[in-house]
């Protein structure tokens, strides 16, 4: 594994500077039914293909951002800072 990730702040860097967070999902609102929470907590898409993910630039700007990555080829198609909107989850 040695692919490059274009950090939205720092530009293209080695994947070893980053930490993978998780697949991007939207968090159920408080009081949602149990099934929603279980699906959100335990079910991963594990997409073999293009997937939206959280990454953190540990050895750089120390920011969380969103990357669109092809998990089969490790090609990072795009990256962006999370949208500035209250609620804490970006979709």
């Amino acid at each position: 594994m040695s692919f490059l990730i274009p950090c939205p702040n720092c530009g293209e860097r080695s994947v070893y500077e980053f930490r993978f967070g998780a697949e991007v999902k939207s968090r159920p609102s408080a009081g949602s039914p149990s099934e929603d929470w279980l699906r959100y907590t335990y079910v991963k898409q594990n997409e073999s293909g293009v997937q939206k993910e959280w990454w953190y630039h540990r050895m750089g700007c120390r920011q969380w951002f969103i990357a669109v990555r092809n998990t089969a080829t490790n090609e990072v198609l795009s990256t962006s800072l999370p949208e500035e909107k209250p609620g804490g989850t970006s979709s």
Binding site: W54, Y56, R62, L81, E84, P86, G87, G88, S90
Partner: peptide
């Protein structure tokens, strides 16, 4: 410490707080 800091920052990412 690293983990906790990242954890806090993650949950405020995109919140505009």
């Amino acid at each position: 410490i690293e983990f906790v800091q990242q954890w806090l920052e993650w949950w405020m990412a995109g919140a505009g707080w």
